[in-house]
Simulated scan of single mutants.
Amino acid sequence: MAVAALIVAAGRGLRAGAEAPKQYRRLGGRAVLCRALAPFLAEASIGPVLVVIGSDDDARYRNAIAELSESQRARLLPPSYGGETRQDSVRAGLRALSEAGFSGAVLVHDAARALVSADLVGRALAASRNSRAAVPALALTDTVKRLDSAGRIVETPPRDRLVSVQTPQAFAFEILLAAHEAAFSAEVRGFTDDSAIMEWAGHEVATFAGDPMNLKLTHPDDFSAAEQRLGRGLVTRIGTGYDVHAFADGDHVWIGGVSIPHGRGVTAHSDGDVGLHALTDALLGALADGDIGSHFPPSDPQWRGASSDRFLAFAAERVAARGGRIDHLDLTIICEAPKVGPHRDAIRARIAAIAGLRLDQVGVKATTSERLGFTGRGEGLAALASASIRLPEPE
């Protein structure tokens, strides 16, 4: 079943303070919207990703998503424009998905929940396969009181039957769209989440485990709390990667995402880019998340001749989905020829673009092996890479 992600980012966020809407403010050095998008864009089983934005937020939106890698931006549908309320905005996004021909399940998420984790997205995906409607829920730890109009307590509901709910919420797409259209036609307003519309339309709503870290940014203090959560307990991890390819007939080689003219090509299942392969393994190693072969097996024909920028972008997205950040990538190319030096700046720029980094976060070096070994004999070329990243410390 196809799954789409609908990210609601059309609100003004006035309670959060500041001049810009909260989804475009910086949190831990990144736009809130980009943090919210990251785990959805990193999940291969999610197809179209659509963001609903304010009608006058085009420039803010373009500036924000410029932080994403090329492959991440390529997965985004053109944004849809929201309405006066969240309910209006979700309906607009659902209609845009419908007009694009989508059918299946949809995960609806608020951009203000910027600390959403890959694990929570995974639980939402699992719920979408088992229920027409399901929401992440957390048990309440505080006692809840119901008040009258004068502020006096009139009831203490049993806490064991109460939960707070979060996003992403998972729904059968056509059923959620029909519920929204019915509410619009009936002029029923004021729904603050989509599960309430499904309840109103007579559908059962299941729950799955929420995440206490999935904070909603509403007030100025929430940004301070989120910054503390991002900054506390980040651990540095280092990964290394190595790749080698033998020369074969051809007229160019790919190194670091750049095609370099040469009298030989390489033997490879994909495009044979030793630099990007080594960097991919370095990031996956830092994540303790297997290696390039486990994610893109050479036995799978879909990767035959594939452009290796897809592999590096995938690894970078896995870092972002874990709430981490890449600090530095360093690459060493080992070969007698071709000469890498004239292409060094282009390679650095290409790697930075693929991984969503600044140029000063990418190092590229080249060396020969003094005519020793297979590289010295001109039989092939090799690459060594290292990656330093920071990840949230496990609970």
Rank of each mutant, 00 (worst) to 15 (best):
H262D: 13
L147R: 03
F40Y: 15
L6A: 11
A64S: 12
A4I: 01
G293R: 10
Q23L: 04
P394Y: 07
E155Q: 12
D271W: 01
V51Y: 03
A133P: 01
V253A: 05
T375Q: 14
G17M: 01
R113F: 05
A387Q: 05
R371H: 12
L359V: 13
R159Q: 11
P21Y: 04
R344H: 10
S195I: 00
E204Y: 02
A111T: 06
N214W: 02
R26K: 14
R159F: 00
T192F: 00
R152Q: 12
I347Y: 06
A92C: 11
D273K: 07
P157Y: 06
A226E: 09
L97Y: 12
L77V: 03
Y242V: 08
H262Y: 15
L115D: 04
Q87I: 08
S117V: 07
E174K: 08
G101W: 14
I53M: 02
G104F: 09
A366M: 01
S128E: 01
E174H: 10
G122E: 04
G29N: 09
E395M: 07
F102V: 04
A20L: 15
S369V: 03
A352P: 09
L162T: 13
E395R: 10
P392Q: 10
V32C: 07
M198T: 10
Y81A: 09
G380L: 03
I389S: 05
V90H: 05
A179C: 08
